[in-house]
Amino acid sequence: MLNWFHRLGSPKTFFEISGRWQVPLLSLAVLMLAGGAAWALLFVPPDYQQGNSVRIMYIHVPAAILAQSGYVMMAGAAAVFLIWRIKLADVAVKCVAPLGASITFLALVTGAIWGKPTWGTWWVWDARLTSTLVLFFLYIGVIALRSAMDRQAGVGRACAILALVGVVNLPVIKYSVDWWYSLHQPASFSLTEKPSMPIEMWLPLLVMVIAYYLFFFSVWMMRIRNEILVREKNTDWVKQWLAVR
C-alpha cells in the first residue's frame, strides 16, 4: 500500500496511470453532466413556490459544495507536500487553486442569478454568501502568492502553508458569519440526513453533484499532467513521450 503510494507520487508513474484514466473519467463526467442537466431542466416538476427558477439549484448547489471541498482537497494536498515533500502534491496544489476559484465564482454568480427571482435582489450580505465570498478571497490569496513568488525556491511550501492556514480558518469564518441573521435556506443537500425535498428533485441533484465532482477531478488531472510535462521537460521520458507524438 505504502509502496503504491510512493510509486504514484513519482510524476512519471502518475502520468502513465492518469493517461489511462483520462478519457473514461472525462467522458463519464460529461455524460453525467449532460444527463443530469437535461433531467433537471426538462423533466423535474417546477417548484410550487419558486416555479421554474428552482432549476438553478441544480447548477448552483453542486458548485457551492465543490467550492468548499475543493479548498479542503487543496489543503490536503498541501499537507502531503509539507509532510512528505512529494513534488506531485505541490503540482496538485498549484493546479487546483484556479479550478477551485472558478468553481467558487460560479457558485457566487449562479447564487446571484437565483437570488434575483427568489429574494428580489442580486446580493445580500448573508452568512453563507459572505463565507463563500471570503472563500473566494482565500483562493485568490493562494493564486496571488504563487504568481508573486514565481521562480523562487520556496514557492510551493509557502503556498502550502497559506492553504493550511486558510483551512484552519475556514470553520471559524463560517461560524462567525453565521451569527448574522440568515436569509439563505439551510443546506439543501446532505447524504446523512433524510432529504428535505421530494425524491424526484433530490435524485437529479445527486447526479449533478457526482457529475461536478467527476468533472472537477478530470480537469484537475489534466492540469496536473500538463504541469508535469512542463516541469519535467528536460527528462528523457518526457522527450521520448513527445517524440512519439
Binding site: 478571497f137 496571488a144 480558518n169 469564518i173 461560524y175
Partner: peptide, 9 residues
C-alpha cells in the same frame, strides 16, 4: 490580500 480574509471573524 493574504491576511484580510483571516480578519473576517
Amino acid at each position: 490580500i493574504l491576511v484580510m480574509p483571516l480578519y473576517v471573524p
